[in-house]
């Protein structure tokens, strides 16, 4: 599904040079759920951004479904993201002017889906994540957990091949975090979708099939959690 070879990412801030990723090699299989863990500043989010094509690499190759991201134009990458990827972020990042259902259907509309079909699909996914009855509320009218469920619904609505989740439980309490993660695991199992979850929370990370531990921009350790 995802193949990364010798991925490097360097940030230059004035005269300061930060080697955020230093030669990551990684393969993610279809339907796999992996978590990326590590201390703050180890490069977890940078890895997710580079693998998903949100950020450019300094060096190395990332192929998704056999296609190199470097070979895609910005528009192609955007189209690919709209059709084949889903994103979940720590701060939910919902569009405040749109309701839950409008936020959810947005990726479908952007990839040219018929408005009616998009609405039906969005309502279905919102029901799936347990937000039936809250579809027409704006983000400001929803709790943190509910907002994150909308974000998950939005990431799943276009039946993505892969979902990228960056600290998706970072703003939630332990109980809600567990519920959200359980929901992702359920969807992973039922839909055979690939999930890459970045987290620093061990209890959340170890719910995945495989755990990658990063330190200073390199994969320090890779293991299958105990529940496996």
């Amino acid at each position: 599904m995802v193949e990364a070879k010798n991925v490097h990412k360097v940030y230059e801030i004035g005269s300061l040079r930060v080697d955020a990723l230093q030669g990551i090699d990684l393969t993610i299989k279809k339907g796999e759920m992996i978590s990326v863990m590590g201390p703050s500043g180890c490069g977890k989010t940078t890895l997710l951004n580079c693998l998903s094509g949100l950020d450019d690499l300094t060096k190395g190759i990332v192929k998704i479904e056999g296609v190199s991201l470097a070979e895609m134009s910005d528009n192609k990458k955007t189209e690919y993201r709209a059709r084949r990827m889903g994103f979940i972020f720590q701060a939910y990042n919902l569009l405040p002017v749109l309701t839950a259902v409008e936020n959810t259907e947005l990726p479908l509309l952007l990839s040219g889906c018929n408005q009616k079909k998009a609405r039906i699909k969005a309502l279905k996914v919102l029901k799936l994540v347990g937000l039936e009855g809250r579809e027409h509320h704006k983000p400001a009218e929803l709790s943190g957990g509910e907002q994150q469920r909308v974000a998950i619904a939005r990431s799943l609505v276009n039946d993505p091949a892969i979902v990228w989740a960056d600290e998706l439980t970072g703003n939630l309490d332990a109980e809600t975090s567990q519920q959200i993660m359980a929901l992702l695991c359920k969807l992973n199992k039922e839909n055979k979708q690939t999930f890459v979850v970045v987290t620093h929370d061990v209890s959340i990370g170890e719910m995945a099939d495989r755990v990658l531990k990063l330190r200073d921009g390199v994969i320090e350790k890779e293991y299958k959690p105990f529940h496996q």
């Binding site: 949100l54 189209e79 059709r83 889903g86 994103f87 972020f89 952007l110």
Partner: peptide, 16 residues
Amino acid sequence: KSEMGIARAIGMKRRH
């Protein structure tokens, strides 16, 4: 800014 970033992330093009 962050709204625009997320919109671009989930598939909105620059022209949008």
